[in-house]
Amino acid sequence: MKFRSVVAMVVALVASSMMSTAALAETFTFTAIPDADESRLNARFGKVADYLSEQLGVDVKYIPVKSYPAAITAFRNDQVQLAWFGGLSGVQARELVEGSEAIAQGYEDQFFKTYIIAHSSTGIEAADALQDSVKGKTFTFGSKGSTSGRLMPEFFIREHFEAAPDEIFSRVGFSGDHSRTIAQVQSGVFDLGAVNYSVWDTELKEGKIDTDKVKVIWTTPTYPDYQWTIRGDVDARYGEGFKQKVTDALLNMKDEDLLASFPRASFVPASNDDYAPIEATGKAIGLLD
């Protein structure tokens, strides 16, 4: 019996993979990881897929992924043709897929920033620059591959102190998520943390943050962040002018319900060159070769 079930399984796997290959040949697939609130991705981004499908006249499908590396892999392996990347993951993805292009970014992503937050027990107050009193404290970044939770704050910290984070702080952690960075600094697990400003502002508004326990002590200069990146071969596969159609559909997305999934006020044009500072920073701190 067991042997037969193995055979059945292999047959089913091969058959299903062939069927889905055929079905996906004309389907345009995208992925997106929002910077906050990853709940019910399928339901929320399913609506974005419906909108794009309507605008583009092809089947559009959304697949949820867990992390930036997973999104980059899917993009590279052509399992998705369009992706909503962070600044750094976009640069990494475009390096791996020749001809791919940043076509639109969020309005907010033109001047993104990171907050450095501190637990009240540190006694550190807000200031225009990072203070020497942060030295020797414990510090957590967000996810290792995050632009706002890792790359840019690490860059500004290195620039200011002329030293690597693990030489400045007594311990450096990676919480894996902006919400968790806030939770960990609020509960004093880490003294300090680096958090995406928009996640902080949202949680503050929702009353999830106790400002007696945790507050912003420094705001980084601005930098470009999230963007839509599309593969270079889409015109050849979905018809001439397809890339432009996708770009227009994104720029014309006005429905607040759809935009709230990202969450962004609107999308504005972007190009690969907009992310040159991110690439330079990634190289400077050794995250990119």
């Binding site: 089913a12 796997l13 993979s17 889905s20 399992q79």
Partner: peptide, 13 residues
């Protein structure tokens, strides 16, 4: 086992 094969998520290409 048959049900499990049927229930597996679909394969991307």
């Amino acid at each position: 086992v048959l049900a499990a094969i049927f229930l597996l998520p679909e394969m991307p290409p």
